Simulated scan of single mutants.
Amino acid sequence: MGRVFRGQSTHKVDGKGRVSIPALFRRVIEASDPNWTDGLNPELVIVYGDPRRKCLECYTMDAMQEVDAKIAALPRGSNARKILQSVMHGHSHPTSIDETGRLVLPAKLREKLQLRGEALFIAAGDTFQIWNPETYAAEEAPKTEDWLQQQPEDFDPLSLLDNPEGV
Rank of each mutant, 00 (worst) to 15 (best):
M88K: 09
I130T: 00
H89I: 14
P42E: 04
A63M: 00
F25H: 02
N35H: 10
C58Q: 01
R53P: 09
V167W: 11
D146W: 12
V4F: 11
C55M: 11
E134K: 15
V104M: 10
R110T: 10
R3S: 02
R110Q: 08
D38M: 08
R27A: 07
R26Y: 10
N163Q: 12
P106F: 03
N79K: 15
L120H: 00
I122H: 09
F5S: 00
G2A: 10
L109Q: 08
T60M: 00
Y59C: 03
F155V: 01
E43F: 03
A141F: 07
G101D: 06
K16C: 05
L74S: 06
V28A: 13
G39I: 01
M61W: 00
A124C: 09
L160Y: 13
T100L: 14
P142T: 08
T60P: 00
G49S: 04
E140K: 12
S9I: 01
Q129M: 07
L56D: 06
A141K: 12
E140P: 08
N41C: 07
V67D: 00
D14T: 05
M61A: 02
E43T: 09
S78L: 09
R81C: 11
V13A: 03
L113H: 04
E99D: 14
E139T: 07
I71S: 04
P157K: 11
S78M: 07
L113W: 01
I130Y: 02
G90R: 06
M88F: 05
L115G: 03
H11W: 08
G7C: 04
Q151F: 12
H93Q: 08
P152S: 15
G7T: 01
A63I: 01
R81T: 07
L120R: 00
T127M: 06
